[in-house]
Design a protein around this nucleic acid. Structure first.
Lengths: 267, 267
DNA sequence: CAGAATGATTGAAAGTGATCGAAAATGATT
DNA sequence: AATCATTTTCGATCACTTTCAATCATTCTG
């Protein structure tokens, strides 16, 4: 990981949310706190980011009306470290040049950072993901057509005959509201619709869920377990859930989330 | 492996990835680090790559942050006042609730500002337009699907069966490279393709061109004059061009870009 | 054989990580 | 509300690693 590379990561990270902590950037880049502080210092000199206690913030004032979708923003503050670790593991599954599909969501959005150095073909129905990758990476971006739903932050077409059908990928990555023995669950009918369109357009279906999702239940079942190729989650996954996945013949990847200070959750 | 060959490899390598390390280039070329450093040095002298600690990076600005598309940005600085006046006139043609199509371009992009306080249905193939309207307006945004072309800043699908065919609007707004007796002209084949897909999806075709475009000629003719419903331009339009439009039965709107104008007072 | 290019070596320079005391923020007590 | 103690973060320093530049020996080419 080189200096310039870290700088790019830092700059792109502060644009996703109002502030990033030094610790966040450590896990994101894999370097020590001292180095991150030095980086923030130099970027502060270059007026690229603003240095604040505990981390850095975007140079643009809090007129952060952007990202069009409050629920997205509030959700994003939860379990950031775990989500980032999961997203990193997801990107590590891919090689340069791969074609992937990323379904919109707060967990999958975290994939944009590790994807910044890649050159892949990314198809997504998420406007923020497309926007970020367009501005901060050299990946080829393909977007599904349709109306932009502000609350869910996805693009969805009411028709079946859109480009989605013409795009096929190695892997599809998606989040979910819950994951239980019944299958993959989602709360929003709109999201169900969006995900239904994408499922089946890839060889493998990779589900990104932080461990809290194994306790969640929702009314809408998106698909059954056997439809899932791999689940990526964090260390907090209950043994019971792991056994359930094992029984359903689903690969399980547990992402190690580096320095996390949430020890109370496990016990 | 000859010097020139290595140089070619190095140059192409830095364009793929943000940074390449000396070690990367060693394995890529099979020569020693010393040689790679010498190569980077000479290429740095020739302004072909930028030398950084640990390797090299592309000569293009340190961070390709921003509107993701250089040509877009440089174009945007020209004739701003005229373009804004034209764009304002274009938006004034529309009523609340109208459905419109906006084809991507620097002139049509200016429509986003007057559109900010509207509530309309906007279909566009331009990522920047969608982004801006999404963040700064309450219009309903619909986007065409496909790959995002960074240079042209448009989204284009190679397939004919995308949502574009399912969207029909009152008016379609588009810019052009040139406008002459032969018809509407464009320079970029990709833009032609994008525009071809949208033309025919609206009752009226409104062309936004600043007056300099009447002098421009391009190799590719998009459509003939009689296909155009209305042309909006600025005061600089030559009499000859006005007569030409008159003869072709095209409505002509001349937007007043000066400080004195009748419509400005009302708003 | 001459000239140039390449590879290896080595001391210098720069970057990185860890440690420790100082400064700041947080919260608890009076 | 003010003060004190605890925790967190910061800045500086030092040791260690990586990278650089200069030099010299070797190889390749004509």
């Amino acid at each position: 990981m080189h200096e310039k590379e870290r700088h790019r990561i830092i700059i792109s990270a502060v644009q996703d949310r109002p502030v990033v902590t030094v610790g966040d950037l450590c896990t994101l880049t894999g370097v020590s706190e001292a180095t991150i502080r030095r980086d923030i210092s130099t970027l502060h000199m270059k007026q690229k980011v603003r240095r604040i206690r505990g981390g850095a913030e975007a140079i643009t004032p809090p007129q952060f009306a952007g990202l069009a979708g409050r629920p997205f923003v509030v959700n994003e503050t939860m379990n950031i470290a775990a989500k980032q670790a999961i997203a990193r593991a997801a990107v590590e599954m891919c090689s340069e040049g791969d074609s992937i599909i990323i379904n919109g969501g707060t967990t999958t959005f975290q994939m944009v950072h590790p994807l910044a150095n890649r050159r892949m073909q990314v198809f997504t129905n998420s406007f923020p993901i497309a926007e970020h990758l367009l501005k901060h990476s050299k990946n080829t971006i393909m977007l599904s057509g349709g109306a932009i739903y502000r609350e869910q932050n996805i693009i969805l077409s009411p028709f079946d005959n859109d480009v989605t059908r013409n795009f096929y990928a190695n892997r599809m990555f998606m989040g979910a509201q819950g994951l239980g023995p019944i299958g993959l669950m989602e709360a929003d009918p709109l999201l169900i619709q969006a995900e239904q369109k994408l499922i089946g357009q890839a060889d493998e279906l990779i589900v990104l869920v932080d461990s809290s999702k194994f306790a969640q239940r929702s009314s809408l079942v998106l698909c059954q377990l056997d439809r899932i190729t791999t689940v990526i989650t964090d260390e907090g996954i209950p043994d019971k859930a792991a056994a359930m996945l094992e029984a359903a013949d689903v690969n399980l990847i547990v992402a190690q989330s580096g320095s996390v200070q949430e020890n109370e959750v496990a016990s």
